[in-house]
Design a protein around this nucleic acid. Structure first.
Lengths: 343, 343
DNA sequence: GTGAAAGCGCTAACAG
DNA sequence: CTGTTAGCGCTTTCAC
């Protein structure tokens, strides 16, 4: 690999000049500029990113912490992040915490500030103290999918109004005429999906529809499958199921199939997120879409701002933690919901 | 962020000594060693990876080129790669080429050799010339899922016997008693899935079963759906469908459902790969599993070897291109295949 | 055993 | 306009 000085030598100038033409800094004569460019071309020169990072005191990558790859939402989001990052000249290092806080911390310790100049965090089951620590050490951190815009997490974040998502789902079902709606929550009762369920309950309350059964199960197809079976066995009168995420909703559709129920004629099913699979399931899943790409864009641009402003360094008011709010979730009508069959 | 010299100062030694204790190089007295470790702890020192990379002349990351995220196989593979890389002390930068050779080249140009010391390539639709170029420039490249062990690609690779996978799928269907089997190939006729189809055809030939229709469609659920509909409409007598990948197989199951066919009673469906979705589909998909994790491990370790041996640099015999072959694909019996219904 | 010194490849003042 | 001079933080001979 040729170096800057080799290029300089080849062009009969100094390294500084080459650097200048390469980054359009400082005034450079047109003729030398050409000569340098030719030398670059001739030698096949590529800037050494690690060297540049060291000299500039910044790094060309962002770290993306993800908890697992089992939920296809994360890869989809990772793709969106990668695209956004590239437009800002960053590469993304993917850090799979594997749901283990210690793995997450190991990643933060190693790359934050030395290889990555910013950290993006999805629901990666990370220790907040660790995140604060890396922020204090000078590497900005942005939480990517905060679920409750009204309760800032104390860390910069991009929030999505997931309560509203739950509400929209509930309203849709109610409008269709459903009155007995089972709910599947993909987390513990006080867990990550609580706001979604709360929104759903709000919709019921406003419409004067009584709450039916709710199950808390893992946020997976299998979890949704199990939950739906239990729900339907406990209350065969259910005409609809609301799930706080698409994966459990898909599982609920499988359960319906196994129980001989037709979706949506016998049972309507709705989820939240609109992962790609929702489009591709059979029947296609009605869901409340979250603006994934927008969230990724907002998260990356917020992170960039924090990097530029040295957020977290001394002198910053800890009371004002920036939060960006994505546009509202939106109902996506597909084939898994319909009016309840007259009984 | 504290630096090495600050730690040294704090411990009353020189940077060189700190470096020595941190990497267990050179002899260091036990007492100074302790003092240094304490200083590291006290200051919360973290080695600066970019600086280290520059000094060592090597980089702490591997680049993983993927073509898209639409096929869930890639994220699954990426996860496996990330795990394997971490055990060898590498981080992985995910490079989404988005199916565009130019994007791929841009990535290679920028990070190969300067930020990543090795490149892993999945079917990323990259220009082979670009890959050779980066290899020649000193950054080893490993192809991750070469489909034809008998036809080395001219670049180091990990091969999987996909012809065998197709054969196993075909044999399974034939053993069950199927004699009219439609085929869905997820690529052009001469494309990436050709070996899989060839294996399937081999199985038919050996059993003396005549070939039925074949469709070449995109390697997606939708592609499989379309293909299956056409296949079944053209030949309603088909009792089974072989797809060269799980995604089209899933699409075929959807098509069967829409046509009122019961899988597997009316139609058996088999795929190749065993992506997670195959387990979670309804009915669960019978498929021929590819050893994904093993391939990732082999690819990373091969890449490491090439890095250590400066493969591609001057002096290497271009005639011997290393290839690792994974263990054989294996049939995974699930619920989507069965004996054909007697007619 | 430990320190001094040079250098990895690049950038960033500042001089000229 | 272009060259000179210092580093960025770390590793690594090679002396002491």
């Amino acid at each position: 690999m040729p170096t800057l000085s080799e290029v300089a030598q080849h062009a009969g100038v100094t390294p500084a000049t080459v650097s200048n033409v390469l980054r359009n800094r400082g005034r450079v004569g047109e003729t030398t500029r050409q000569r340098v460019l030719e030398a670059v071309e001739a030698l096949g020169y590529r800037p050494h990113l690690a060297a540049r990072a060291l000299a500039e005191g910044r790094a060309p990558t962002l770290a993306l912490m993800v908890s697992s790859i089992a939920n296809p939402f994360y890869p989809e989001f990772a793709l969106a992040v990668e695209r956004a990052a590239r437009t800002s000249g960053h590469f993304v290092i993917i850090c799979n915490t594997n749901e283990e806080p210690l793995t997450g911390r190991a990643y933060l310790d190693q790359i934050a500030g030395t290889l990555s100049e910013g950290v993006l965090v999805t629901n990666a089951n990370l220790d907040f103290a660790d995140l604060h620590a890396t922020q204090t050490r000078g590497t900005p951190v942005v939480l990517c999918m905060w679920e409750r815009p009204n309760e800032p997490p104390g860390l910069p974040c991009v929030a999505v109004d997931f309560r509203l998502a739950g509400q929209l789902a509930g309203e849709h079902l109610i409008e269709l005429g459903h009155r007995r709606i089972g709910a599947i929550v993909g987390s513990k009762a006080a867990g990550i999906h609580a706001a979604r369920y709360a929104g759903f309950v709000d919709a019921l309350r406003e419409a004067g529809v009584p709450r039916s059964r709710v199950r808390y199960e893992p946020d997976t197809i299998q979890g949704g499958y199990d939950a739906a079976r239990e729900l339907l066995e406990a209350d065969p009168q259910l005409t609809a199921i609301f799930a706080t995420n698409d994966l459990p909703a898909l599982g609920a559709m499988h359960a319906a199939a196994d129980l001989g129920l037709n979706v949506p004629a016998d049972l309507s099913v709705i989820g939240i997120t609109d992962i790609q699979l929702a489009r591709e399931s059979r029947p296609a899943l009605t869901t409340v879409a979250v603006p994934t790409v927008e969230v990724a864009d907002l998260a990356v641009s917020l992170l960039r701002e924090l990097i530029e402003s040295s957020y977290g360094q001394a002198g910053h008011d800890p009371a004002t933690v920036p939060m960006r709010i994505s546009s509202a979730p939106q109902l996506v009508l597909r084939a898994s919901t319909g009016a309840p069959r007259a009984r």
